[in-house]
Design a protein around this nucleic acid. Structure first.
Lengths: 335, 335
DNA sequence: ACACATCATGCACACGTTAACAATCCAAAA
DNA sequence: TTTTGGATTGTTAACGTGTGCATGATGTGT
């Protein structure tokens, strides 16, 4: 049997109310008795029963971390860094519950009683019904990684458009004019943003957008591979290829090698994310660092604040991306 | 305000007990009223209050997933696959709470009231005090990835020793005699097992074990890189290097390239795990497939069984590893 | 000396659920 | 007719905690 406040009360010769007040640092208690009870509780190895606490306090002590999906389109590194970032903030004051939004048929079981707050790592507008549900259920929540339109929500995200502008611009400065792009999953916010940066960079340089230089993929290694094969097959193949994430870049580099060509000798390749492994590839990957762990940490902080102090946070926070120049983008071979 | 069974009772003109029975498919109820109540509950959008349920049922509806650490030594892919595997089983019957064991100073807050069951992805004997705590607290638990000695526990793991025996044997058959190993974190169970397979393979082939061919690292990319540099510096450098995981293999390959040498032309390299990216490296990595997602899924199944039906599972389950031959191991250059 | 404020404590109830036990009804058996 | 017993439903308490209100003790100003 576990120790309850009533057990403590009996031994301390006070009512359980007093014990409760002591353990919660209520101002309505003598500081001496408070200390005495606290020490006693410590000795007896008391731990609060969160079920009971939840019931009466109307709180669950659960924080939900929801990904759009845990299956396709979520890379391992991305997932890992997110959980780490949030976990470092949440500690053991809350349970961090990890879920995929697409695991649910209906959201009925997600309500204020089951989650004190929710962090949504959102990829696309497909999540909007879910966000809508959160609003309606009155669950404090923040949205990471995506700017949500229409709904009122706290957003924390990186400036992906700017980031991809810079890599592509870097390619242009190196002398590339035939620049292709391998896109991520359609409808993903990140996909739209990164494409936007790509387009702007080309326009600013006065380079024409070619339809055949834009090929769709799905953020995983394999899709990067096949997309690159497609590009290499073109009559006038690109000299540089921007991949919307590092995973696809790895697949793309593989495709180049398998075609008997070299990176960056024959084709330059860049990625996005700065995954852990990207510095250790051969050639080391030129990419854009996206502060996922930092976004997650900030998000968790803001959420906890808004739960605990009902403080209002600003609508939207942008974190800077950073160009990481390594070896996979070089000057194009002379024509 | 949320709908409770009392609200339903009022509308259905029955007692709340009857409602409770209806919703829990108790045999003590008329099937007509049962259906009527169920339908009413559905219409009213009733969802049970888990805090209340927990309190009286003495269950938390939480399943803990504990990693030895979430920081160093846990690779992103490993983490991702584990969570996916378990999540696919747990569904929304339970909350899956993810934690690092080393986040805790003491385990007081982990008790039967806070977790119905715990899955431990364990790396080393350092986790033993934690496992001991779980036993003592009477929390049903299973240990993945490691055979735990002394303590009674259900174990599910892959036969790493056999796996590494096979890669190393594969190297030997290709004609290598100067074979080195880059180890993972000291004290990790996996490190010991994989080393064991390595040693046996060499012994069976009558190859002498050289101290200088065994270098310690820590399962991350960077440590693989520096370890390989060290090996390349040797007066008589190895012709083949077995890395205890794929991450380190990536680092090692990078080191070879940076030294102006080729894989597998000058040095063959093999890894362990069969991470998602290993097929997409250049050269594609020869490695050992370890069924992490499968281990996790099985583990979750066994745990749920033992929670819900109090059924006893076998002490230890081994899942097979599998040699994956790709390109990074070839015949050694003629001496 | 008295009224009154202040501080510390206890009593009793509430939260939403399950379950042991009691009560009722009706049909079948004696 | 009376008894028995199964089926169905209701009454009540319990789980462990927090809180509004009442109570008692102690001091403070007049």
């Amino acid at each position: 049997m576990n120790v309850t406040i009533k057990d403590i009360a009996r031994l301390a010769q006070v009512s359980h109310t007093t014990v409760s007040r002591a353990l919660n640092d209520s101002p309505l208690i003598n500081s001496e008795t408070k200390e005495k009870i606290k020490q006693l509780a410590q000795e007896m190895g008391y731990t609060p029963n969160f079920s009971a606490k939840s019931l009466v306090m109307d709180r669950s002590y659960n924080i939900g971390l929801f990904f759009s999906t845990l299956n396709t389109g979520t890379s391992a590194g991305f997932f890992y860094e997110t959980v780490r970032g949030i976990n470092s903030v949440v500690k053991d004051a809350y349970n961090l519950v990890v879920r995929g939004i697409d695991d649910y048929e209906h959201y009925r079981s997600i309500h204020r009683k089951s989650f004190d707050g929710v962090i949504v790592m959102s990829q696309s507008a497909k999540d909007d019904p879910f966000l809508h549900h959160l609003s309606e259920a009155g669950i404090p929540h923040i949205v990471l990684n995506r700017k949500v339109e229409g709904l009122k929500a706290i957003n924390i995200l990186s400036d992906d458009s700017h980031g991809s502008y810079r890599v592509v611009n870097h390619m242009i400065k190196k002398g590339h004019r035939r620049i292709a792009i391998i896109s991520g999953k359609q409808n993903f916010h990140s996909t739209v943003e990164r494409r936007d940066g790509f387009v702007r960079a080309l326009q600013d340089a006065g380079i024409e957008l070619k339809e055949s230089y834009q090929v769709g993929a799905s953020y995983d290694l394999k899709s990067g591979y096949t997309a690159m094969l497609q590009l290499l097959d073109l009559p006038e193949r690109p000299t540089a290829v921007f991949c919307m994430n590092d995973d696809m870049a790895v697949g793309a580099v593989k495709a180049v090698h398998d075609a008997g060509l070299q990176v960056p000798g024959d084709v330059s390749v860049a990625g996005f994310d700065d995954s852990m492994f990207s510095a250790y590839l051969s050639p080391a990957l030129t990419t854009v660092k996206r502060p996922i762990e930092e976004i997650s940490r900030q998000g968790a902080l803001v959420l906890l604040e808004s739960i605990e102090q009902k403080k209002l946070a600003p609508d939207i926070i942008y974190l800077r991306t950073e160009l990481v120049v390594r070896e996979s983008v070089a000057e194009p071979a002379k024509a």
